[in-house]
Amino acid sequence: MAASAKQLKKYRRYRDVMTDVLKRGAAVYKNKDGSEQLVIKSPYTINYVHSYASDTRFFLGLAQNRLYGSECKGCNYVFATPRSHCMFCGEPTEWKRLSTKGKVHSWTTCEFGGEEFLKETPYNLALVEFEGADSLFMARLKECTVRDIYVGMPVEARFAKKPEYLVRDIWVVPSGKKPVKRTARKAVKAKRR
């Protein structure tokens, strides 16, 4: 807490308290009945070590431009979002390379989001039916806008050139779309706003 008690500002609106606390470290909320509450800033950051465990091959696959799902040898169900045991019969599954072509099962355009992704809005999310898979896969749907998208729209997967080893190393674009140059993509974004 940087500010000393003498410098604390007092506010009647909680929103103003919050703004000042985040800026200066502390502030005082003045209640209707005259009572005062001290509000302080409380930062919190963590670096986790994280294992993808038995889903690892999926994430390594993305770095090689490959989409892996998993197939149950007990009931032949193909999971587009991999899992190492089948949720129906409990048998272990085997890795199966999936087609990167599919269709939009459902979609939305997010104009708002969690803090981490606010700067990327607006962005589209889609649940994708990849050919040959029985379950869906959730991904970003890029290079199109709210006006272009519809249920059933053919899409195909794209892979990150520099993998982050996160699920966002894969996304989908409308089928047959030529790779958009960086400048052109910016222009599309500007037009949308």
Partner: peptide
């Protein structure tokens, strides 16, 4: 947090995905 969150998934987005299909 492995599959849904890192693409910008958040709850209003998930419910929108569901209602879009419901409408369809």
């Amino acid at each position: 947090t492995n599959f849904d969150y890192p693409i910008g998934g958040f709850y209003s987005g998930y419910y929108a995905l569901m209602v879009t299909r419901h409408i369809y």
